[in-house]
């Protein structure tokens, strides 16, 4: 059954940041002009202590979305029911606006790499992932957002492009998408494709959230490290994405080499400014 955009997507939240431990106190004290925070689900799947204490106080003042790294939706192992139970429990407690994880696999034979591994873009993998996304959405009772990951290898037996695979998963499993603009750029550099072609192939009515991040360019290859500011080329792609997808909830994702909150707020202001300009130009056109 075809859906209309307004039926699929949650209302946009504006401009957010990933919630990181070094900023807990500053957020509570200064109440920064951030529209929402994204939390790493696994960091709060603990019985108690500091992270849960601060999250409970921060979510009194800010909308929260949950972002996971361990769902391993593409693994050929059975779905991890314990993990899903924990995720569901946390969801009931935190009441996030939505839940995301990555279109990847993170381990097999019950061993975890704790890294986001790329899938082969085959019909077999597609069907496997679609079945599992449907099962997870049934358990969680909501549409999952799937995020594109950065990758460093290309499989010989892939039968379609990454963007075709991403689009097919979302449409067949009726899920939503978290587009990481930096990851698109990193993979386009590493594999030599056109990032604009990628963005233009993604259905407008499925994109709920954007990630923006930095990376390390090691010459022949870009490593997705999330420990640097967003680069200009990624800002340009972001502007292109806003023109295509509209006012999508956008956040800066910094996982390492975490700067003072003010620096991330300045980066977030740049996102606000770029999005506003792009949307104004569309409106005027």
């Amino acid at each position: 059954m075809p859906h209309h955009a307004e039926q699929l997507l949650h209302p946009p939240l504006g401009f957010g940041l990933g919630l990181r431990i070094p900023h807990y106190e500053a957020i509570l004290e200064s109440r920064p002009a951030v529209d929402w925070f994204e939390v790493l689900s696994e960091n709060y799947m603990v019985p108690g202590g500091k992270p849960r204490h601060y999250l409970d106080r921060i979510r009194e003042n800010y909308p929260i979305v949950m972002h996971g790294v361990s769902l391993s939706i593409g693994s050929s192992d059975p779905l991890n029911r314990d993990y899903l139970k924990q995720l569901k429990t946390l969801t009931d407690q935190i009441e996030p606006r939505w839940i995301s994880d990555h279109l990847c696999w993170t381990g097999v034979d019950s061993t975890n790499l704790h890294d986001l591994m790329p899938l082969p873009y085959t019909e077999e993998a597609l069907q496997h992932v679609v079945d599992r996304v449907s099962a997870v959405q049934d358990i969680l009772g909501c549409r999952l957002l799937l995020e594109n990951v950065s990758s460093y290898v290309t499989y010989k037996h892939s039968e379609m492009s990454e963007w075709d695979f991403l689009r097919e998963v979302a449409q067949r499993a009726d899920s939503l998408l978290l587009l990481d603009i930096n990851n698109i750029y990193v993979s386009s550099f590493n594999h030599g494709f056109d990032p604009v072609e990628y963005i233009d192939a993604i259905p407008v009515n499925r994109v709920q959230q954007f990630h923006l991040a930095g990376h390390r360019n090691q010459g022949g290859c870009i490593i997705d490290t999330h420990d640097e500011p967003v680069i200009d080329r990624v800002w340009e792609l972001y502007e292109h994405a806003v023109r295509r997808f509209g006012a999508v909830s956008t956040m800066i994702e910094r996982d390492d080499n975490i700067p003072p909150l003010e620096e991330l707020l300045a980066e977030l202001d740049r996102a606000r400014h770029i999005a506003k300009q792009a949307l104004t130009q569309i409106a005027d056109a």
Binding site: G74, S76, W105, V108, D109, T111, L113, P120, T122, E124
Partner: peptide, 17 residues
């Protein structure tokens, strides 16, 4: 064994051994 499983196991071997 599925092609996907085959690939993932080969990946784990490459990473850990």
């Amino acid at each position: 064994m599925s092609a996907l499983r085959d690939l993932q196991q080969d990946f784990m071997t490459a990473v850990f051994s």
